[in-house]
Amino acid sequence: MSAVRRVLRTLFSVVLTFLGLTMVTFFIGRVIPIDPVLAIVGPKASVETYARVRAEIGLDLPLPVQYWRYLTRVLHGDFGTSVITSQPVLQDMLNVFPATLELALLALFIGVALGVPLGVVSATQRGRWPDHLIRLVSLFGYSMPVFWLGLVGLLLFYAKLGWVAGPGRIDVGYEDLVPTVTGLLTVDALLDGNRDVFINAVQHLVLPASILGYLSLAYIARMTRSFMLGQLRQEYILAALAKGLRPARVVWVHALGNAWVQLITVIALTFGSLLEGAVLTETVFSWPGLGLYMKNSLFNADLNAVLGGTMLVGFVYILLNLVSDLLYPLVDPRARSRA
């Protein structure tokens, strides 16, 4: 496949998925039993007022036209106004998303930095006790509901042991002490050189990130193990051993180098599921990110905000697919020369 065709194909599927995403959110927006007109005019309005407002917000138009209008607005970054905050939803999301990103990035780092090595060890020790142990640890990880693990974590490490700070992103006394640059509180504190804020932020971050990290570790370790077992059976491994390389080099450079090709997709997927897990984790930890924002909107019937959040997470999903497509050539020379 030529480079141009590859890029076109990826773009085509990105655009299509995006259209699908907007159609689904549009559909959800219309299925919802609340009458948006009624919400604006109130139950006592006259039939004429009702009809006027209905026409004003375009609900009398045919569905495809309504969808087209919706799509145009979304493409202009207009997700409507939040009922709770009375701000544009986009603005709200830009405010809260960095908190989610900070959490998810650290969790992903933990998941990859521990999950990949554990998966490799598990594969090379197949059938021996380290393998059994690692498989057990990861089985527990993907069998545990994250919200429950979060609560148990809080109970143990915050309430009983006092090792970490409690819910929230920072203690009240440290709020708004550092200027927002990246939105990632730990990074902003470092940029500002404010040690206290940094330490406090880390104390808050470490538990939720470790818990999310554990869940992604479980999945990444499991997938790494299975990819590594596949690679270790290959002939090139025999050749690498036959030329006298140390087994560690054969495993970590040769086999793992090939396993990365498959792992990229897994890691992208994991990052996506971390954003999802954020809804639950942020609820448990009162973490002021996108998940908590969506959850609060949900219970205040703030549909614009819920759909905006869905769209944002869906959009990040699409981007992740795109990024993993673009990353392939970095680890796989076959994809490079095809490009």
Binding site: Y236, G244, L245, G257, P333
Partner: peptide, 25 residues
Amino acid sequence: FRRLRGRRIAMVLQDPKFALNPVMS
């Protein structure tokens, strides 16, 4: 064995398509 392999005794395998690491030059 590791010190001998490649240095004093080596082995050529059947199919270079599979016996060479695809992601290393």
